[in-house]
Nucleic acid binder design. Structure first.
Length: 293
DNA sequence: CATAGATCCTGTATGC
DNA sequence: TGCATACAGGATCTAT
């Protein structure tokens, strides 16, 4: 469940159902799922057994579970198709089960399920971070996400306007602001009436501020509805899907009328993926800036 | 240095 | 029916 709202839904589930529990056994069913754990799958398994999870944290699309009494955390990234689900031990494995963790209380076990194996788990060091307290080493390279209270709006505006590349590319760059993916980038651009091919450098400060407000708005609304799900690939820790798909205005709506002006939504290939936009509301780099008055 | 493109993987949907 | 192709919500490595 890749973007911020979906990952936050998972974090909340982990916070409720996994924090405070002590790991009994870890079973790595596919080595690729722990490829980011440099010391290998055996080391990953050995170092987790007997340790207790303190809580569940998140920045952008990264999740981590700090271990009690240690300066380490299990870092998880769901990639394109990863799921963290809680299931009874006797539930069938399913074809994409990658890692299984049991707990000493005998309750539901935690499973990492990932069809495409772009996601993964690793045990990483928690290192001091001047602003955030502690952060896992693999998370330090990304920026704060827009829902982080300490997110620096001015810095974001400055960085967007310093870029020579397309606005959508900037939104997807996790080192500028983390947590935004293909869906919410398109949705925020639609809400702000900006075209993703606009060059960052050409935007006014108020335009970038509006865009940031739209990002927060759409992510907040999605979170309230449990995230966006098109199919069973994107579920919370209890295997349930969110409802935000119903509220999408642009993403996945090629040919359908724009909810503002009725013009059919267009889809174009961009950065090896799809971008959806309203060709009337969101004027492109070739046309006049839409917010000009 | 900033930026653009290729690549990792498995499954589903679509067209011939 | 079989087969080929396009596409899927992401991040990272490589080349320019």
């Amino acid at each position: 469940m890749p973007e911020l709202p979906e990952v936050e839904v998972v974090r909340r589930g982990l916070q409720q159902w996994v924090s405070g529990r002590t790991i009994a056994n870890v079973d790595v069913r596919h080595p690729r799922a722990v490829r980011r754990h440099e010391a290998g799958a055996d080391d990953f398994v050995r170092r987790l057994a007997g340790h207790r999870f303190r809580c569940a944290s998140r920045r952008g699309k990264y999740l981590w579970l700090p271990l009690a009494g240690e300066d380490t955390a299990v870092v998880a990234h769901l990639g394109m198709s990863g799921q963290l689900v809680l299931l009874p031990s006797d539930a069938p494995d399913g074809p994409h089960l990658r890692v299984r963790m049991t707990f000493d209380d005998g309750g539901r076990e935690l499973r990492f399920v990932d069809q495409r194996t772009f996601g993964g788990l690793a045990l990483a060091e928690l290192v001091p971070d001047e602003a955030a307290g502690h952060l896992p080493a693999p998370v330090r390279h990304i920026a704060r996400d827009p829902l982080d209270p300490a997110f620096d709006d001015d810095e974001f505006v400055g960085r967007v306007r310093a870029r020579e590349s397309a606005l959508k590319r900037i939104l997807l760059d996790q080192t500028v602001a983390s947590g935004i993916g293909n869906i919410y980038a398109d949705e925020a651009l639609w809400r702000t009436r900006l075209h993703g091919s606009r060059v960052g450098r050409t935007l006014t400060r108020p335009q970038v501020r509006d865009l940031l407000a739209s990002v927060r708005e759409v992510m907040g609304e999605a979170l309230e509805q449990g995230g966006t799900s098109f199919d069973s690939l994107y579920v919370n820790v209890n295997g349930e899907s969110g409802y935000f798909e119903r509220s999408l205005h642009a993403y996945g709506r090629e040919g359908e009328p724009c909810d503002r002006c009725g013009t059919p939504i267009r889809r174009v290939a961009f950065m090896n993926r799809s971008s959806y936009f309203c060709p009337r509301c969101q004027r492109g780099a070739r046309g006049k800036p839409s917010a000009r008055r």
